[in-house]
Computed example of a mutant assay.
Amino acid sequence: MIFDCPSCKTQNRVPVARVTSRAHCGKCKTALTPPDRPLAIHSEAEFEELIREAQVPVVVDFWADWCGPCHAVAPELEALARTKAKDAIVAKVDTEALPNIAGRFGIRSIPTMILFREQREAKRVSGAMTAQAIASNLAL
């Protein structure tokens, strides 16, 4: 995963296994904090790496740009990512850009959020809801 250094703005590649631990910028050595916003997934390989290597639970939001409820839930996912930054990773998969991933998990309605624990689907919920409801329904 690529993270911008908060100090010098250098892009740093951080292995998924270290995303929630204290990684440091390769240039200025500033601590890179755990992600406090949803991570956009750009490829199947990136998705696979995230699910396989994450040391904490991963909440994946399956969404599409044309979906009104997906836009409504986006700020709630931002809030969830902020409150769970050290305990979970929130990621987003655009079902239009990555239809193979959506198909593999049988996504029939969006937004659908799936919780992955130890490389397996643990729970899923669909529909727009608050960050608190997402966390509660997924047992985060």
Rank of each mutant, 00 (worst) to 15 (best):
F105A: 03
C67K: 00
Q132K: 10
C28H: 00
V125T: 11
E76K: 04
S21D: 11
T95Q: 03
G106D: 07
L77E: 05
I107E: 02
L32Y: 03
A64F: 03
P111S: 04
A88E: 01
V93M: 00
H71E: 15
N137K: 07
A45L: 12
L50H: 03
A64T: 08
R108K: 11
Q119H: 07
V93G: 05
D94L: 02
L39E: 05
D94G: 08
G106F: 02
V60D: 09
G68F: 08
L32D: 08
I89A: 02
R52H: 15
P111K: 00
A135C: 06
D4T: 13
S7M: 10
K27F: 15
S136V: 10
D4L: 15
R52P: 12
R104D: 14
I114A: 01
P38D: 01
G106V: 05
A91N: 04
R120W: 06
T95N: 06
V56C: 05
I89V: 12
H24C: 12
F116I: 13
K92P: 13
I101Y: 06
L50N: 04
V16D: 03
F62Q: 01
V56L: 02
V93C: 05
V73M: 01
C28E: 01
V60P: 11
V73W: 03
E53V: 08
I134E: 05
